[in-house]
Amino acid sequence: MAFSLLLVALIIVHLLADFYWQPMSWVNDRNTRHFKAKKLYFHVLVHGITSAIILTLWEYTFGWQQLSTVLLATAVIMLSHYFIDIAKSYSNKGVVPFLLDQIAHIAVIIALCIYITDNQSLIAYVSALATNPKVLWVVCGYLIILSPSAVFIRMMLERLTANFSSEGSLALAGQSIGMIERVLMLSFILLDQFAGLGFLLAAKSVFRFGDLSASKDKKLTEYVMLGTLLSVSVTLFIGLGVNYLIR
């Protein structure tokens, strides 16, 4: 309980300091001036002060009441946040750098919580998950329905709809929608929530009905139907197979 309490408290503080208490002007200053940005130091200081408050409350309630632990953990959070944000400021500001930035911050927080609480049970739990065949089969299922399935569906569509052009649509939009769709469908299948699967397909049909009914191109309708049916078939096959292997 003590580990979970410290972890969730520090994550909440991180989210508040990173997304609610950081004005956009601070972000722009960091992205343009990098390590020379004064606002970056203000941002790091906000993280340090709020984290120190949480760490102090935890240490003197559940810990060994050692001020040195609070100071060390606060210093690690501030220094790691500074260097991670500096690295991000030199990136292309896309989705991947954003995700890597947040993963790095959370990883530091988790490592600190393990160190402060001396929680060896968490390490044992993670190790057990990493060597659990059921967990690995689920991971394998999600990996298959993403890139490999996208390649298979694209090849099948190219074979079945030769010379058809999807001109006018956003680049990679169909592939991205398909991946998200298959992730949701596989999640519903693994949770035995087939009603959710039906709702997802119905919702997609409603959104696409206007486009297809307004289109005079029969090929577009056939293309969308083929893509949807292939996506559903592949995901059902993979999902039912994973369900069989983990039960």
Rank of each mutant, 00 (worst) to 15 (best):
H43G: 01
V95C: 12
L157Y: 03
S91F: 08
A104P: 00
R33T: 00
N92G: 15
V96Y: 13
A87V: 12
I246T: 09
S80L: 15
F199K: 11
L230Y: 14
L197I: 11
Y244A: 10
A202C: 03
L99G: 13
W64P: 14
V96W: 13
T228I: 15
T161V: 04
K88H: 08
S25D: 12
Q120I: 10
Y142L: 14
L136S: 15
S121V: 05
F188R: 05
L143D: 13
Y41M: 00
I246H: 03
A111N: 00
T56S: 07
T61I: 01
K39L: 03
H105E: 02
V242R: 11
I86Q: 09
E167C: 02
M225I: 07
Y20W: 05
N132A: 11
L201P: 03
Y142R: 14
L201V: 07
K134M: 12
M24Y: 03
P23D: 14
I145E: 13
G94E: 06
Y60A: 15
S51G: 03
G168P: 06
F164K: 14
S149R: 10
L190G: 05
L197D: 09
I110W: 07
L67M: 07
I110K: 00
L197R: 08
L100M: 04
L40P: 00
K204A: 03
A73W: 04
I84W: 10
D118H: 12
V108E: 04
A173T: 02
S127E: 12
H34K: 02
Y223I: 06
L172Y: 09
F237M: 13
I77P: 06
K93M: 10
F62A: 09
Y41C: 01
F194A: 13
W64A: 12
A52F: 04
F207W: 02
I189W: 14
L236I: 12
I11P: 12
L186F: 07
N163R: 01
I12H: 01
V27D: 05
A202G: 08
C140S: 08
D85V: 10
L201I: 06
S127Y: 02
I116R: 04
Q66T: 06
I86G: 10
H34N: 01
A104D: 00
D18I: 13
F194G: 11
P23A: 11
S187G: 05
I77E: 07
E158K: 09
S149F: 11
G241N: 12
T32F: 08
L201K: 12
F83V: 13
L184S: 07
S187L: 14
S233E: 01
I246C: 03
A173K: 06
L72H: 07
Y244P: 00
G174K: 00
V232I: 15
K93Y: 14
L129N: 14
L212D: 01
S233L: 13
I110V: 04
A202D: 10
L220M: 15
I49K: 00
V135L: 09
I145M: 09
L71H: 10
F3D: 05
G196R: 00
A75D: 02
V70E: 09
D211I: 03
L236A: 05
Y90P: 13
